[in-house]
Structures are given as structure tokens and as C-alpha cells.
Computed example of a mutant assay.
Amino acid sequence: MTSIKALLIDDHLMLLRGLSLLFDTIDGIDIVATTTDGSQALTLAREHRVDIVITDAAMPDTDGLAVVTLCAPHIPTLVLTTFDDASLVDRLLTAGAAGYLLKDVSPDDLAEAIRAAVDGGLVLDPRIARHAWASKSNDREGELAVLTRTERVVAKLVSQGLNNQEIAANLHLAEGTVKNHVSALLRKLHARDRTMLALRLSKAFGQ
């Protein structure tokens, strides 16, 4: 199996070195470049042809949000930080971050999250996921109010983690019809992908 090549960014040099040593213990993930300067993110990522960028959130000048804005359209960007801040999570995910993890995450969970992000997934630390959209809690019913009755039924099943085939079987609909409803949900709720949609709907339904 080809190793995942990663760029690691943290403005604290000692933390950067410590994280690099941690990754030395993780099979299949190689830190090919490091920097304390977030403004170098895209240049280094392209130079080393990395598969993922892993960055701190709070940094002077070019912070994690700026790094995500620079890199996320081109390369999955995972935020690894000490800050458990719902509004920051929302801004980062809206900007295109592939995930948000706290720095005390276990090496195994970190490795799994990186692999998932490289594969196109959205990863959130469970301690953050439960309130990732807490700042929008007052708007939940307003969000669902834009849905048709059928879309709301489909949305409920999406929030439970069912795929299109399973939803079609449950509702006795054609799979193509379900796909169209899910596309409408993504558009109406301004969700970047299905994972974000499911998480947002789970909060909206109070699950």
C-alpha cells in the first residue's frame, strides 16, 4: 500500500517536532514537510505533492482558516488543534476543511481520520461533532421548513445514515428519485457533501 504523504503545520516548533515524532509511530502516513508558517502551506504542499495538509487552527498571521482557504480546494486539509470552539468549527468546515480534531486524539483515531479525509470523507472529533452547529440551533426548524414533505422524510433517513438504496427500499421509491431528493437537500441546506448533510440533519432532528 502506498503511504500517505502529509504536510504538517504548527506555529509552535516543539509541538511540531512532537507531532512529527508521533507520526513516526504510525504506519502508512509519512510527514514529508513541516512548517511553522501557514503562508507556505500551498507552496510546500505542491512542491512535495502531499495527499493531505494537517494544520493547527490558531496561528499568527496565517491561521488555520487561512490555510484551509488556501489549500482545501486542491488538497484535503485537516485541522488539529486544542480549541473546542463550535463557531470556529463551522467557519472551517464552511471554508472546506476535511475535518477538525483535538490534539489529544489517540494515534489510532488520528491515523483513521487522516485516511478517511484523504478518501474524501469529512471527519470530526466526537466531542466536537455534537455541537458543531450549536451556534445555529435556533435556526433548525427554519432550515427544515424549506423542505417538501417527501424531502423531510428522506432527510430523516439520511440523518440516520441510510444510503440511497436503503432509503429507496424503505420508502418504495426508485433509487434515482431518492438521489434527486438528496441533491435537493444538499442544495437547500447548503451542505458541501453527504456527511455534512447527515450531521446537520441529525442536529436538526434533535438526534
Rank of each mutant, 00 (worst) to 15 (best):
A155V: 02
L186A: 00
A198P: 03
N170A: 14
L197K: 09
R152E: 13
R194F: 09
K179V: 12
R152L: 14
R192W: 00
A169E: 13
R200A: 09
V154T: 07
L199F: 00
H172K: 15
T177V: 08
R187W: 02
A191S: 14
A155G: 08
K188A: 06
A174Y: 06
T177D: 05
Q160W: 10
L173R: 12
H190N: 12
S183A: 15
M196G: 11
V178R: 01
A155C: 06
S159Y: 05
T150W: 00
K203S: 11
S202V: 00
E166D: 15
K203A: 05
E151Y: 09
R200W: 05
L197G: 07
D193T: 05
L157K: 11
I167K: 03
S159W: 04
R187D: 10
E166F: 09
V146R: 12
L185C: 02
V182D: 08
L189S: 08
N170Y: 09
M196H: 01
R152Q: 12
L185Q: 04
H181P: 02
T195Q: 14
N170P: 03
K203R: 08
R194C: 06
K179M: 09
L185W: 09
L197C: 03
N170G: 06
L171P: 11
V154M: 02
T195G: 14
R152A: 07
N180I: 13
H190F: 01
L171F: 10
G176Y: 05
R192N: 13
M196W: 04
L147H: 07
N170S: 15
V153N: 10
L171S: 08
L199N: 02
H190D: 15
S202N: 02
V182G: 07
M196D: 05
K156Q: 14
A155Q: 08
A168M: 04
S159F: 10
E175P: 05
E166T: 05
A191D: 03
A191G: 10
T195K: 13
K179D: 15
H181D: 02
T150S: 13
T150F: 00
S159N: 09
H181L: 07
Q160F: 13
A204Q: 11
A169N: 14
E175A: 14
N180S: 12
Q160E: 15
V158L: 04
G161L: 10
L201V: 00
G176S: 10
R192T: 13
L185R: 05
E166N: 13
L199H: 06
A169K: 10
M196C: 05
A168F: 01
A198Y: 03
A174K: 10
V182H: 04
E151M: 01
G161K: 07
L157V: 05
K156W: 11
Q165E: 15
G161I: 11
T148V: 02
T150H: 06
I167V: 12
L199W: 03
D193W: 02
L186H: 02
L157I: 02
H172Q: 14
A191V: 03
T195F: 03
A204N: 13
L162T: 10
H172Y: 07
L162W: 05
S159A: 15
A198T: 09
H190V: 08
R152V: 00
L197M: 03
V153R: 11
A174P: 05
L173S: 08
D193R: 03
L201R: 01
H172A: 12
K203F: 06
E175I: 13
V178Q: 04
E151Q: 15
S202K: 07
